[in-house]
Each structure stands twice: as C-alpha cells, then as structure tokens.
C-alpha cells in the first residue's frame, strides 16, 4: 500500500491548498490530458478527475486518475451516483484504492437530461450524502454499505464532497453541508464563487455552526474566459450565480481573457482572506494552461512539498 493523501497533509498542516479540475477526453486517447497534467504539475496539490461531467460519456474518472498518478500528480477521484449503483461504486472504490488513489469526491451528478444520452436511465441508487457515509464506513467501521465487515484492506480515503452556496435558501445549504460533514466529508469543494457577498454570508453561517473546524473548505474559482462564457454560466449552468458587474467588466474589457484572469486572481485573493476557507479549487475547464499563472501570481507558488 502506498502512502496516504498528500492533499490531506497539506491541509492538516494549515497550508492554503490549491486543487484544480480536469475532464478526461471523449475518447481513449489520453495524450492531451496528460499534456495538461504536466503543465499544472507542481502548481497544485491535487487534481480532480471528473466523472462523465454534464452526463456526457467520457473516459472513466478511475482510468483518468490512474493516468495522473503515473504522471506523478495526486488525483481526486470524482464519483457520481448517476451511473452506478451501490455495488458498482463500492467495487470501483476498492479498485481505485488498490491502484493508489487516496482522495475521493462524492457527488450526486448532473441529471442525464443535460448530457449526450438524455434517454438513459439515471441510477441514483444512492445520493451523495449516503455515498460519503459509505466511504466513511470503509475506513471508520471497516464495513460495506450493507454492514458486512471488510475483512482486510479496507480503503481509507480522504473523503470530499461538494456544496453549492449559491442555490436555494442559504440556510438550507449550510444545514446540508453540516449533514455531509456528519456523514463523513473531510473536505468540501464549493461551486464556483463569483458572488462574493453571498459566499461571505455563507461562510459566516458556516463559522457560526463551527463547520469550518470540522472540515476543510476549498472555494471554487472559475476564470471566466469571455463575456459569453460568463453569460452562459449565469443562464445555462445550474446553480452558478454570476453578478452583473462581472459580466460588465468582461464586456468592457479590451482583452477579455486578461480581464478574466484578473477577476479569477481577485477572487482567489478574496477567498483567501475569508476565515474558514482552507484552499481554492480552480475549475479552468478547457483552459488549464492558465492555472500556473493564477497560482503564481496570487502568491500560492511554490506549493509545500
């Protein structure tokens, strides 16, 4: 068995953690992803590998994570409840651990309606909270979901979950976060923050309930590439809230890309100063090359060993 999660160590030592996100290809051709992985290597503590994000068929997150491991990066394996039932998920988690994967991020998953196979049957045997709880059961009680003991080699994952502070009643989101933490989440990656005011209110409620002390919260940041991308996120992506001034800034900018980087850097610096935020999760989907610049220009480079 290999060593434990490095991400966990970074966080436990009190460093401001940096993770980023990578989507596996819609093919069996892995070179492109690996090139991107090399580019961010050293700038981030761990890399999330998405699980057929937006319900589009892609190379599996497990395979993607193994490729990253081989490149010397630490992956965070994303697992959704949409496509697999409790048997398949537990099986995959055993396999992943055996291959050296130490971080798992448990999600419900986007509805299949949004993807490229909208007529598929969504599984949703479990929900994300239950999944977190099952993974916690592996390490804490050495049992499977059905209570049956894992006689040997029970995986001990660093368990992550997500939370969206920008959807529905704020109070409900905090209570739901609490529920995930009670279920076993050790770190939380949030939906992308654009609306700082709402995020601050969210964190204040989080602190009121002492949740920041029970888990590590990594604020999500998306560098917006253009006004169009910002509007698309605002109108089309469920659960993202983009304030008008961000859209306006991008519209009025001479170089929207540079403006997008500037916005992302401001956001990273801003969330860094919020009490209870332990790190940042950069989701530069399709624009991963910008990650090193964001990390170094916000004083987060070099990363702790």
């Amino acid at each position: 068995m290999k060593a434990g999660s490095r991400l966990k160590q970074v966080l436990q030592k009190g460093h401001f953690a940096v993770t980023c996100e990578m989507g596996p290809p819609k093919s069996a051709q892995i070179q492109g992803m690996l090139a991107k992985a090399r580019a961010v290597k050293g700038y981030v503590d761990a890399v999330n590998v998405t699980d057929c994000q937006s319900a589009v068929v892609r190379l599996s997150s497990l395979a993607g994570a193994v490729h990253l491991l081989r490149e010397g990066l630490e992956p965070v394996l994303q697992v959704t409840c949409r496509d697999r039932n409790r048997i398949a998920i537990q099986s995959d988690l055993l396999g992943a651990y055996s291959l050296g994967i130490r971080n798992v991020l448990c999600l419900t998953g986007d509805h299949q309606r949004f993807g490229n196979h909208p007529t598929a049957k969504g599984v949703f045997d479990l929900d994300s909270v239950q999944l977190v709880n099952i993974v916690k059961g592996f390490s804490e009680r050495r049992i499977f979901a059905n209570g049956e003991p894992i006689k040997e080699g029970a995986p001990d994952y660093f368990i992550g979950a997500v939370e969206n502070p920008f959807s529905g009643p704020l109070e409900l989101r905090v209570l739901r976060l609490e529920k995930k933490i009670r279920a076993g989440a050790a770190f939380i990656q949030t939906q992308a923050v654009f609306d700082l005011e709402r995020f601050k209110r969210f964190m204040s409620l989080v602190r009121d309930r002492g949740l920041d002390e029970k888990c590590f919260i990594l604020a999500g940041v998306i560098p917006p590439k253009s006004e169009r991308a910002a509007i698309f996120m605002r109108d089309k992506v469920p659960g993202i809230s983009v304030p008008d001034d961000i859209v306006t800034r991008l519209r009025n900018a001479a170089d929207p890309k540079q403006e997008g980087i500037r916005i992302a850097k401001e956001l990273i610096s801003a969330v860094q100063s919020i009490e209870g935020v332990s790190g940042v999760h950069i989701m530069a989907i399709g624009w991963e090359e910008v990650v090193p610049q964001l990390v170094s220009e916000t004083g987060l480079y070099p990363r702790p060993a």
């Binding site: 409840c81 949409r82 419900t108 998953g109 986007d110 509805h111 309606r113 949004f114 969504g122 949703f124 929900d127 994300s128 909270v129 239950q130 997500v162 939370e163 969206n164 959807s167 529905g168 009643p169 409900l172 209570l175 739901r176 529920k179 279920a183 939906q191 469920p238 659960g239």
Partner: peptide, 27 residues
Amino acid sequence: KSLLNGPCGGAAGEHCEIDSSIPCAWI
C-alpha cells in the same frame, strides 16, 4: 434524482435544474 438527503446543487431558485416548470421538491 430521487435524492433522500436534500436538494442537489443544481436547483435554480425554487425550481428543478432539469425543468424550470417543476418546483424543487426538496426546497
């Protein structure tokens, strides 16, 4: 998504992420 422990993160306002005419059951 037949969730049993609360809403997903996709709920837009009071509505389900897959159809704005469907209210979010969990909210």
